[in-house]
Amino acid sequence: MKNKLFEKYFVLSPYFWLVLFFFIPLAIIFKISISVSEWGMPPYQDIFLFDNGFKINTTFENYVYIFSDYYYIGSFVNSLILALISTFFCLLIGFPLAFYIATSNIKLRNILLVLVVIPFWSSFLLRVYAWKIILQNNGILNVILLNLGITSEPLQLLYNQYAVIMGIVYTYLPLMILPLYGYLNKFDLNLIEASKDLGLNRIKTFFKVILPLSVPGIVAGSLLVFIPVVGEFIIPEMLGGSDRLYYGKILWEEFFVNRNWPGASALAFSGIIILVLPIVIFQILYSRWSQKNEI
């Protein structure tokens, strides 16, 4: 009897917290996103009106407004492209690194792993700031380029989309390396030897053996990079210029500058539906599936 009470307490306390402070806020975003906007405070009408009998006062205009304006769609597409490119570069740099760390001897492996994680533990904002210093017109990179005679005058390296990609790849790289390492670490190195013995050359071994076995790690790492990058606000704000607008920026401005709460909520909720929901559903199905298959 006592066990039951205990279990209830364990399950229900966090349940209560998350419903109250996570689920209800998401529901409120949805509610405001289908509210009629108006001038005032708060800048939207209630969705239930009681003045002349009960009336439901909702609209999908905020969504229509967003999805018919290139300003919003374009920014979202920009963010998706940015996330794709950044994920690709994280993978390009992260995969060899994770692979070679995983194939090192155990002592070196642990040291390398700590070395990869330490920057990740340090402040995100300050790591972005570091690139602001490096990419300045009189920054260290320009000084090197000038001294090597590659350019004759300082290049404008900051405040454009390339600086943004640079900053993102730098700050998110550990998020790609860690899950990759987790999977690569598990697999049997003898497989590589075996494939070589069977006559496959290096390139074939890579594509036929190593790559297929690391797919789960690649997927996990790519998701960890891709999703937050789509909603990234700080890096484009600090390193980016006005050449590209991104989802995070327009969401921020829609709320804080335009004070269009229903519009901002519709943007946020669309983001959840398009980006987050498919992944969450996949995760739940996957965890249920793997649980069933183990028990």
Partner: peptide, 27 residues
């Protein structure tokens, strides 16, 4: 499933959306 949803979604939800939802919730 709802429990798993609640406990894992914050991991993948962009901070910006979370921040907005919290602010609108408090208001």
């Amino acid at each position: 499933s709802f429990y798993i949803f609640l406990s894992s979604t914050p991991l993948v939800l962009p901070e910006l959306i979370l921040g907005l939802s919290m602010l609108l919730f408090f208001i």
